[in-house]
Simulated assay, not measured.
Amino acid sequence: MFESFITSTLTVALAEIGDKTQLLSLVLAARFRNKWGIIAGILLATLLNHGVSAWLGSWLSQFLQSETGTWLVGASFILLAAWLLIPDKDDDVDNRLDRYGAFLVATVLFFLAEIGDKTQIATVLLGAQFESVFWVTMGTTLGMLLANVPVVLAGDYLMKRIPLTLTRTLAALAFAIVGVLHILG
């Protein structure tokens, strides 16, 4: 339980630095005054998206119990580590949604932005590794909040001071270590 929660929190928090959803946080913070509405939207979207992702990973784990499955999950973490080294770019956000308010816009855009994102795939893999939907979901959600709440609250100030290359490298290293440890059992 503790290992799944801590590993999920740390890997997603590191992976999220410089990710497109963190850039989305910055855009939303610049467009809306209601910072707590944005944060609540990030929380809800992440709980929904990562809850389904952790469940999918946990369900898939039944097919990955063999030695081949162990290698597949471990190799997937290592491939994800390599993917983390590729910087994300900011997607354009449609301003027509602004009339729905910070909470709804943040919820919808975050949920959609997470589909197929590195942190969603990481959540599936963590769910498969730990077979704990609740603790993986709680950990990945906390990791998302740790990376995005400061951006919402302090925005541009923080983004100019965080060394993204170093952070991406540390995140990639963390995922590679998790992959190797999974393979070694």
Rank of each mutant, 00 (worst) to 15 (best):
V105T: 15
L60M: 04
Y100F: 15
L43E: 11
L56K: 03
D94I: 10
L80P: 00
F175T: 03
S76P: 00
F5S: 13
Y157G: 06
A54H: 03
F77L: 03
V152M: 00
L109H: 01
W36D: 07
N49G: 10
L10Q: 10
V12M: 01
G51E: 10
H50A: 04
R31V: 12
A29R: 09
F63P: 01
T9V: 10
Q120L: 05
F175G: 01
A176E: 09
L26C: 08
V149I: 15
I115N: 11
A172P: 11
E114G: 07
L85T: 07
G69S: 01
E67Q: 13
A82H: 09
L26P: 09
D19A: 12
A13K: 05
A82S: 12
G57A: 09
T141P: 02
A106F: 10
I121V: 14
W36M: 13
Q22H: 05
I177C: 12
I121L: 11
T119V: 04
T7Q: 05
W83N: 09
G57W: 10
D88E: 07
V108E: 05
G143W: 05
I17H: 05
F63H: 09
G69C: 01
R96Y: 13
G185E: 11
T7Y: 12
E67H: 09
L142P: 02
F2H: 15
A40S: 15
R33M: 05
L146E: 07
T21G: 06
T21R: 08
V136G: 12
A45V: 01
L23W: 12
L23A: 07
L47I: 13
T46V: 05
L60S: 02
D94H: 08
E114N: 14
G57C: 08
L10K: 10
A15Y: 08
F110C: 05
L43G: 12
A154L: 15
P87I: 03
